[in-house]
Design a protein around this nucleic acid. Structure first.
Length: 555
DNA sequence: AACCGCGCAA
DNA sequence: GGTAGTGCGCGGTT
């Protein structure tokens, strides 16, 4: 019997309740995050779920079932249900029971020491056609211990195995790629300790994902990986702004020169030893066929880097299934998706090789401390009636764009007078309205590039203190001195959007001011439900939302 | 050949 | 169940 009154309650349905106010809550959260995912994060009790993917990621990172059970034991208020103990042991034990490797002739092999597992999976309809029985195994019946994998099916097999619940450990190695001399130019700076750790965990693991908070230098982890494996590299990015940023960062931080870095996009089609391409060029079709597949084999890439891997579009998963012989590094601040394809990231890019909780990087001073607030706003009677009478598909917009949010925005702006403030919204009408009411410039997708640059620059210089922005500002915008963000609306339940928006505030401030993130929510509407979901990722990282009433923002 | 505006896709 | 932003390719003009 565990008599210490810990902050956790482990339940037989694999959920874990965390008592937020408990003195050990943050330590428990830190250890629990290794293998469990935060499901709900209201004020007092947070609910985590122990998921298969969480357990396998932890296992791939070298944690054992015993470690994980020890975490639960240490912080649990009561005995851990027997079923959970057994379940964790069994699930963790499923990882690596199957191994993909090569035999002496280089043929891909799926091997297991457990014949029962092999015979189970080979009966699955979607896997059977990808495997075949080598001659020397024929007639061995239940003693079969390996199958050959069709060379092109390495990724597909891994994908299907994860779906079946038997993730394979891929030890079949990688093509070295064409060697290319790349070194970090560390005369005036050096990789931070966590960046070094991320690089070596990735290189040791072979392929996989590195998770670091916004502004913590993910590009440098990519550069570090390139400088370690020293091979021709294909870098895939979400947009051209980010392509240019990679390029200039690589020029500044590595031995690479202009001649060695190419851009492959809609506008420019260069193939150089280091090539930066957009995801979209890979998915672009001409006459029904992918038009730029040749890029994937244009050079013998030894490394493929996936920037913002949480945004990987569906067709790129498909292409990646066929790239399994090349080392793959995924980079992201928010390894969450709302489309349930985390399993595909796991099987096709690789397991999570490194992550640093945001609060740890904050404690080391590399990102700014931040406080999060949820401001609840009562709709006036008239609007409540209108809301109640509306169809489901109109409700979110009604609640999210409630005019009552304006006076709260004004109050918050006043409270933070003199600071650099971003007002972030999802609907263009709402943005127009806010910009006008605040007398502040607005920035949306239709703002021409030069004007965006000008507005961002004025904001950095402090000529402009308030900027009203749409989704354009979710990514790739560097506004170091912004200390306040007021989110008036956002896309439904997007966890990664919420995190990216807070991310805008996390550059350490010369002013020394802390960051404040406000999200405005219409009380008792779907707005409030979506807000709950949106907050989960940040809550998992240890950010707690203080709930304020719109009547009393000081509280 | 360079530059645009437009429709489409995911 | 939804809005907005993005990049690509095409077909137009200069």
């Amino acid at each position: 019997m565990n008599t210490a009154a810990g902050p956790l309650i482990v339940q037989s349905d694999r959920t874990v309740l965390l008592e937020v106010a408990h003195p050990d809550a943050e330590d428990a959260r830190h250890d629990l995050a290794v293998f469990a995912e935060l499901e709900r994060a209201p004020e007092h009790i947070h609910t985590y779920r122990i998921t298969r993917l969480g357990l396998w990621n932890a296992r791939a990172a070298g944690h054992t079932a015993e470690n994980m059970l020890a975490t639960l034991e240490k912080y649990s208020k009561f005995d851990i249900p027997q079923s959970v103990i057994v379940d964790i042991g069994e699930t963790v034990g499923r990882y690596g029971r199957l191994v993909i490797e090569r035999d002496d002739t280089g043929t891909l092999i799926l091997r297991s020491t457990d014949a029962a597992v092999l015979s189970e999976i080979v009966r699955a309809k979607r896997i059977a056609p990808l495997l075949f029985l080598p001659d020397d195994q024929k007639g061995r019946g239940p003693a079969i211990d390996r199958y050959e994998i069709q060379a092109w099916a390495r990724g597909q097999v891994k994908q299907e195995l994860v779906k079946l619940g038997w993730p394979a450990e891929d030890l079949a190695g990688y093509t070295p790629g064409t060697p290319h001399e790349i070194a970090l130019d560390e005369r005036e700076w050096s990789l931070r300790e966590y960046q070094n750790q991320a690089v070596s965990s990735f290189v040791d693991g072979g392929s996989g994902v590195v998770v670091l908070p916004c502004g913590a230098g993910k590009t440098l982890v990519g550069a570090g990986a390139m400088a370690t494996v020293k091979t021709t590299t294909l870098i895939l990015v979400t947009n051209t702004v980010s392509a240019r940023q990679w390029r200039s960062e690589l020029l500044r931080r590595t031995s690479l020169t202009e001649d060695e870095i190419g851009e492959y996009s809609g506008q420019v089609k260069e193939v150089k030893p280091v090539t930066i391409a957009t995801y979209q060029i890979l998915t672009a079709k001409r006459k029904g066929e992918y038009a730029h597949l040749a890029l994937l084999n244009a050079l013998d890439w030894g490394l493929v880097i996936y920037d913002e891997v949480h945004l990987l579009p569906a067709p790129v998963f498909k292409l990646t299934a066929e790239l399994q012989a090349r080392r793959r590094l995924g980079l992201t601040a928010t390894l969450v998706r709302e489309d349930g394809r985390e399993g595909d990231v796991f099987s096709l890019i690789g397991p999570k090789r490194f992550d640093a909780p945001w609060k740890e990087i904050e404690a080391q001073g590399f990102i700014s401390p931040a406080s999060c607030f949820e401001v609840r706003i009562d709709l006036p009677q008239q609007e409540r009636l209108e809301y109640a009478a509306s169809a489901d598909d109109e409700r979110y917009r009604l609640a999210a764009t409630a005019p009552a949010k304006l006076s709260v925005v004004k109050e918050l702006v006043k409270k933070h007078e003199g600071e650099r403030i971003l007002v972030i919204g999802q609907y263009l009408d709402q943005i127009d309205m806010l910009a006008e009411a605040l007398g502040a410039p607005k920035l949306t997708g239709s703002t021409p590039i030069e004007e965006r640059e000008r507005l961002y620059q004025e904001f950095r210089d402090g000529v402009t203190k308030i900027l009203v922005v749409s989704k354009v500002a979710n990514f790739s915008v560097d506004l170091p001195e912004a200390t306040v963000a007021i989110q008036v609306s956002g896309s439904f339940g997007s966890r990664q959007e919420e995190a990216q928006r807070l991310g805008r505030l996390l550059r350490p401030k010369e002013s020394g001011l802390p960051a404040n993130f406000y999200t405005l929510v219409a009380r008792d509407t779907v707005d409030q439900d979506f807000a709950q979901n949106r907050q989960r990722f940040l809550a998992e990282q240890g950010y707690s939302y203080t709930i304020l009433d719109s009547d009393n923002l000081a509280a």
